[in-house]
Design a protein around this nucleic acid. Structure first.
Length: 330
DNA sequence: AATCGCCCCAACCGCACGGAT
DNA sequence: TATCCGTGCGGTTGGGGCGAT
C-alpha cells in the first residue's frame, strides 16, 4: 500500500520490509546514527515514515537483538513480570536483554495467555490465574509453569509435583491444569511474608482476612501459609477504603502506610517478616507496627490508578518471588 | 490439489508524554 | 501557559504459513 508523502508527494510504502530497505536503513544508521526519525527516511533514501523506520530498527534490525525461541529463564521472567506489572511490555522487555516489547507481547498473546485460559478453566479456584504459578525454591520453570511440560499433569493432583525433565518452551500441548503446591509454600525460610494487594476498584476488591493459624488447611479459598498466617477471602466486596487497607476485618481499624506508586514497588519494598516469635494469639510486633503506620488515602488511590486491574498478588519471600493469587468470588 | 480456517507475528495505529519554543 | 513536535507504548490488524478436510 502506498500513501502520499509529506510535502513532495513521494509515495510512502507500507507493509513488509524488503531486504533492500533493511540494508538501506542499517547502512544509514551505521554511518550516521539515529538523530531524528522523521528526517531519517528521506536521508536514507527510504519511502517510509520515520515511525515505520524506528519500529523496524527497534524491533528487528538492531544488532543487539536476540532472535529465536525464548529460553526457559526468559519465559519464567516474562511470567513473573507480567503478573506483577501487567501488560507493561516495555518495562518487561527492559529486563530481558535482546528482547523487544513487541516480541514479548506477541509471545504472551500467542502462547502464554492462551495457556493461562486453559489453566483457568481447570482451576478449582475459578477466577484466579496467577495462582497457578506458585514456585517452589528448588524447582525451575516446570513448577512455575507446569503446563509448559509435555507430560500430562492430573488436574486432581493438588500438591503433586511435576517431575518432567526439561519443559519445552512454547509447547503447551497439555490441556491439564496445573496446581498449587501448598507444601512448597511452607518451606519459606524464616517464615517471611512479603505481600500486598491493591487490586481492583472499591466495588470489586475482595477483602482478605489475616489471622494466625496453627495448621495447614485449604478450604473455601483460604490458605494457610507456612503454618502461620492465614489469608482468607471474604465474599463481600470492599465498599470503602475509609477504614484503611482492606486486609482483614480484624485489622481494618489499623492503618497501612505506603509511599509506593506501584504494586510492583510495594511488592518489592514492603516486606513483612513474621518470624517464629509470633504467638498464636496475635500478630508479630513487626507486623503490628507495620500495620499501625498512618495510611494515606491519596497513596492508596495513587497505587490504585497505577495498578494493573488483574493484579491480586501476594508475594511470599520477596527474594524468591512466589506469586500467588486468591480467587475472587463475585 | 484445492479450499478453508486458524495461528503467529511483523507492522500499523492511536494516544500519551515530555521537551522545546 | 499553550502549542508543536518527536518519541515511545500498548492494542490491533492483516498477510503469510500451515494443518485439516
Amino acid at each position: 500500500m502506498l500513501r502520499a508523502a509529506h510535502s513532495d508527494q513521494i509515495p510512502l510504502k507500507r507493509g513488509t520490509w524488503t531486504a533492500e530497505e533493511d540494508q538501506k536503513l542499517i547502512s544509514y544508521i551505521t554511518r550516521n546514527g539515529i538523530w531524528n526519525w522523521n528526517s531519517l527516511p528521506r536521508a536514507a533514501g527510504l519511502s517510509r515514515t520515520g515511525k515505520s523506520c524506528r519500529l523496524r530498527w527497534v524491533n528487528y534490525l538492531r544488532p543487539d537483538l536476540k532472535h529465536g525461541n525464548f529460553s526457559n529463564e526468559e519465559v519464567e521472567t516474562i511470567i513473573k513480570l507480567q503478573l506483577t506489572m501487567g501488560n507493561r511490555w516495555s518495562k518487561i522487555a527492559a529486563r530481558l536483554p535482546g528482547r523487544t516489547d513487541n516480541e514479548i507481547k506477541n509471545f504472551w498473546n500467542a502462547h502464554l495467555k492462551k495457556r493461562l485460559k486453559k489453566v483457568q478453566a481447570n482451576d478449582p479456584f475459578q477466577g484466579t490465574i496467577q495462582s497457578k504459578f506458585v514456585k517452589s525454591s528448588e524447582d525451575g520453570i516446570g513448577n512455575l509453569f507446569p503446563c509448559a511440560q509435555k507430560e500430562s499433569i492430573p488436574a486432581e493432583g493438588l500438591g503433586g509435583r511435576p517431575t518432567s525433565s526439561e519443559p519445552s518452551v512454547g509447547d503447551f500441548s497439555s490441556s491439564s491444569g496445573s496446581l498449587i503446591e501448598l507444601e512448597s509454600i511452607g518451606k519459606l525460610e524464616e517464615d517471611s511474608i512479603d505481600f500486598l494487594d491493591f487490586s481492583g476498584d472499591a466495588q470489586s476488591s475482595c477483602q482478605r482476612s489475616l489471622s494466625v493459624g496453627p495448621t495447614h488447611s485449604f478450604c473455601d479459598g483460604s490458605v494457610v501459609l507456612g503454618n502461620q498466617l492465614r489469608f482468607q477471602h471474604c465474599i463481600k466486596p470492599c465498599t470503602s477504603y475509609s477504614t484503611g487497607f482492606p486486609i482483614s476485618p480484624n485489622l481494618s481499624t489499623l492503618n497501612f502506610s505506603s509511599t509506593a506508586d506501584s504494586v510492583a514497588e510495594i511488592n518489592q519494598n514492603h516486606v513483612i517478616k513474621v518470624k517464629n516469635s509470633y504467638d498464636s494469639q496475635g500478630l508479630s510486633s513487626e507486623l503490628q507496627n507495620f500495620l499501625e503506620k498512618p495510611f494515606s488515602v491519596d497513596d492508596l488511590l495513587k497505587v490504585e490508578d497505577d495498578a494493573p486491574t488483574s493484579t491480586n498478588l501476594i508475594w511470599l519471600d520477596g527474594s524468591c518471588s512466589y506469586p500467588f493469587t486468591f480467587p475472587q468470588f463475585y
